[in-house]
């Protein structure tokens, strides 16, 4: 079992980190189909800082607006890390309760973004949960699909998705989180670093090691065409 270090919680010390980001399109969520519900649209001009100030005063309406605004992305992050929808729901729900209890400590007008703060909480909760549960063994991976004959079929596509998920699940936790945040959620290394309490080079190192490991795992599972080294 891999030892995981619990990341310092931003809710214990809501740090003010730089807003800078080096990735184009990092706020794009091409894979996440979400439409904002009417509750969030009711107060489209109210910024997060204002809502947090209201939440600190016990305003449940402001809480609902803020939660509705950010839950979809938080769910996406959690589900990418946990690879489990039900657990992701629980983690995000728990994160919002923490936001409610710690909202008074948020520094309005600072350079940090609330979403970074929230996602850091979510990632920490995910890591805690994974650490308690242990790691899913790669032996639990589904059967490797035959990539050529049935590649277009729904079943083959699902099997391939499960195989990729299993390969990701076999990565060390931090590598998997880095891939989830930077590759799938398209966050910058700087933003992921703030969530993981790591420097940009450290995140880049995790990403590089993760890609090498994934290429090796997929090749070992018999999947070709992943840019493996030619022999």
């Amino acid at each position: 079992m891999l030892a995981m270090k619990r990341l310092p919680s931003p809710l214990d010390l809501p740090g003010r980190d730089a807003r800078g980001s080096g990735m184009a399109g990092r706020d794009r969520h091409k894979d996440t189909q979400v439409t904002v519900t009417g509750m969030a649209l009711a107060e489209p001009m109210v910024d997060d800082d204002t809502l947090l100030a209201r939440i600190a005063g016990g305003d449940r309406g402001a809480f609902t607006v803020l939660a509705t605004r950010h839950t979809a992305r938080a769910l996406s992050v959690a589900q990418r890390v946990l690879n489990n929808a039900a657990e992701a729901d629980e983690v995000v729900q728990e994160a919002w309760v923490k936001v409610w209890t710690k909202a008074g400590r948020w520094e309005a007008g600072g350079s940090a973004r609330f979403s970074t703060w929230l996602h850091r909480v979510v990632v920490n909760l995910c890591i805690d949960r994974r650490r308690k549960q242990g790691f899913e063994a790669l032996e639990d991976a589904p059967d490797v699909p035959d990539p050529s004959p049935a590649a277009g079929s729904l079943i083959a596509r699902r099997q391939m998705s499960e195989t990729i998920a299993a390969a990701l699940a076999g990565l060390p936790e931090r590598q998997r989180v880095a891939v989830s945040l930077c590759y799938y959620e398209e966050m910058s290394a700087a933003e992921a670093g703030r969530m993981l309490d790591l420097s940009v080079p450290a995140v880049e190192s995790l990403l590089a090691r993760a890609r090498r490991a994934l290429r090796g795992r997929l090749t070992a599972l018999g999947i070709t065409g992943v840019g493996e080294d030619e022999e």
């Binding site: 894979d31 996440t32 189909q33 979400v34 439409t35 519900t37 449940r60 809480f63 609902t64 939660a67 509705t68 839950t71 979809a72 769910l75 996406s76 589900q79 990418r80 929808a85 992701a88 729901d89 995000v92 729900q93 919002w96 309760v97 409610w100 596509r157 699902r158 391939m160 998705s161 990729i164 998920a165 990701l168 891939v179 590759y183 799938y184 890609r211 994934l214 290429r215 997929l218 999947i223 065409g225 992943v226 840019g227």
Partner: peptide
């Protein structure tokens, strides 16, 4: 790009309005 194409075959999380509303209601 070959590895990217493979990684992109992972199903994206399906996050519906109902699911968001359920999580928000649960948190409330």
């Amino acid at each position: 790009a070959m590895l990217d194409a493979m990684l992109d075959r992972l199903d994206a999380p399906v996050i519906s309005d109902d699911r968001v509303a359920r999580v928000v209601a649960g948190a409330l």
